[in-house]
Simulated assay, not measured.
Amino acid sequence: MKKPYPLPLLPHTFDAESELTFYKKVVEASSVLEKLKQKIHYSLISESFLQLLTLHESVQSTRIEGTKVTFSEMLEDEIDQKKDWEKVEVRNYQRALKIGVEIIQTGYPLSERLIRDIHSELMKDTRGSTSAAGEYRTIQNFIGPTKQLKNASYIPPEPQLMGEYMANLERYINGHPYLDEEMDTLHPLIKAAIIHAQFESIHPFLDGNGRLGRILIVLYMLQSNIIDSPFFFLSEELEKEKFKYYIILNGVRALNKDEPDWDSWITFFLNATIRMAERQFNKLEQAERLYKEGLNKLKQPSTEKVWGALFKYPIATVHQIVNDTSLAPVTIRKSLNELVHLKMIYGDDRKRNRRFYHYDLIRIMND
Results as ranks from 00 to 15, higher is better:
Tyr291Val: 09
Asp258Ala: 15
Ser48Cys: 12
Lys3Gln: 15
Leu298Gly: 07
Pro230Asn: 06
Val101Lys: 01
His319Arg: 03
Lys147His: 13
Ser58Arg: 11
Glu158Thr: 15
Val340Phe: 15
Phe269Pro: 15
Leu44His: 10
Val69Lys: 05
Leu50His: 07
Lys240Pro: 05
Gln223Lys: 08
Tyr136Lys: 03
Val90Cys: 10
Pro11Phe: 09
Val69Leu: 15
Met221His: 00
Arg363Ser: 14
Pro314Thr: 02
Ala254Val: 09
Ala132Lys: 14
Phe231Val: 04
Tyr178Arg: 08
Lys244Arg: 12
Leu33Lys: 00
Glu200Val: 06
Ser61Met: 07
Asn168Glu: 00
Lys98Val: 00
Asn271Met: 14
Trp262Ile: 04
Arg214Ile: 00
Lys283Gln: 13
Ile40Glu: 03
His119Gly: 10
Ile274Thr: 11
Thr273Gln: 00
Glu17Phe: 10
Thr130Cys: 04
Leu110His: 06
Val59Met: 12
Leu189Trp: 05
Arg355Met: 03
Gln94His: 05
Asp117Pro: 13
Ile99Arg: 02
Ser30Ile: 02
Pro4Arg: 08
Leu75Val: 12
Lys68Asp: 10
Ile143Tyr: 11
Thr146Gly: 09
Lys191Ile: 00
Val59Pro: 14
Glu288Asp: 02
Pro11Gly: 10
Pro145Arg: 06
Met276Arg: 13
Leu234Val: 02
Asp80Trp: 11
Ile104Lys: 02
Ile215Ala: 06
Ile362Leu: 06
Asn366Pro: 15
Thr70Arg: 07
Thr62Ser: 09
Pro260Thr: 03
Tyr23Val: 01
Lys240Arg: 01
Lys150Ile: 13
Val252Pro: 14
Thr126Trp: 01
Ile118Gly: 05
Asn209Lys: 03
Ser153Ile: 15
Glu278Tyr: 10
Leu295Asn: 04
Asn92Met: 07
Trp85Tyr: 09
